[in-house]
Design a protein around this nucleic acid. Structure first.
Lengths: 172, 172
DNA sequence: CGGACCGGTCAACAACCGTAGAATGAACAG
DNA sequence: CTGTTCATTCTACGGTTGTTGACCGGTCCG
């Protein structure tokens, strides 16, 4: 329900009813709505392995692919709520932070952190439009095709290039 | 307030207080909370000109640049609320739809709609992480630098390539 | 048999919400 | 002076929310 409705619109009473149970019982077991959310939004913290920029790109694409193939409910709960619920935003930062650092570390450029942030923004933008907004173009596209299209874009971001006016440099 | 808190957490009473006015007066002038939101979230509907894929990419980057340079409050109100408020989501689709079609039309590929959706997802993902989540890497980066980094990625998406195993085909 | 636990329900509280409508008061037209 | 309009406030209604605590019935241990 958190993934479908977000934090605010998910009421304890509705959760309880969906479980065929009284609202008080939910409180009894979880103590607080926030605690309930914490439990429901526990995201497995998949970390990508250290390696070269290209390896990192592949790992990032892999993790994206798995989250495109089947609905990543816990992640969606966080994503759906992070714009309106402070705790969810913190949870998001906590999950994305380490990953960001690893990406940053693998990129050989002085603005590696910016590049990493952009990669992260792309990943989450795509997940949001596919699962949360269900945009027609993305909702029913094959994960493989999406990954294929994204790969060159990711490479362009993870590979240091783009000093003010380089026309083309098709290496490798 | 809609941009900062989202639809649900923005209360009419709070809006009224911020305006130094009674809540009833807000109702008197706007009729409904939804109507108030509609007025606050009117986004100027900037459409990009027709043209080649590369021209479209530049136009898209331009529009992104302007929304990175200064806080696009109305857009942010929509973006902040679209995951939890149905009307806001509709508003988002209504604003993004035509733009998507134009992008699609300019891309010479059979999966042009997917590519266009990805471009849109990237744009909004970046805006969300910069303004709404205020991610460190993006919140205080120069718009120009972001655009520079994104350009090759956008080109890669808007330019038809990537049939299963083509190494490079620098046409143009 | 008696008591301690445990899963569970019920009713209620205090706060807050969007909204409606009556009331107030000033400005202004005739 | 009178009446009308309009901006504005006040009060209140009905509903929902998170949360609490009293209550109930079983099950198991001694």
């Amino acid at each position: 329900m958190f993934a479908r409705l977000g934090y605010d619109r998910t009421t304890i009473r509705a959760v309880a009813k969906a479980a065929g149970v009284d609202a008080g019982l939910v409180m009894h077991y979880f103590g607080t709505k926030d605690a309930l959310f914490s439990r429901a939004a526990e995201v497995p913290a998949g970390d990508l392995p250290h390696g070269s920029a290209e390896e990192t790109v592949e790992a990032l694409l892999d993790s994206l692919a798995s989250r495109l193939a089947s609905e990543p409910v816990a992640s969606l709960a966080v994503l759906r709520s992070m714009l309106t619920h402070g705790d969810a935003a913190d949870r998001y930062r906590a999950a994305a932070g380490p990953q960001l650092n690893q990406i940053t570390a693998s990129i050989p450029a002085d603005d590696a952190d910016l590049r990493a942030s952009l990669l992260s923004a792309i990943v989450h933008g795509v997940i949001i439009e596919r699962w949360l907004l269900q945009f027609s173009g993305l909702a029913d596209a094959s994960p493989d095709r999406i990954i294929e299209l994204l790969r060159p874009a990711f490479r362009a971001l993870a590979t240091a290039q783009t000093p003010p006016s380089t026309t083309d440099d098709p290496n490798r």
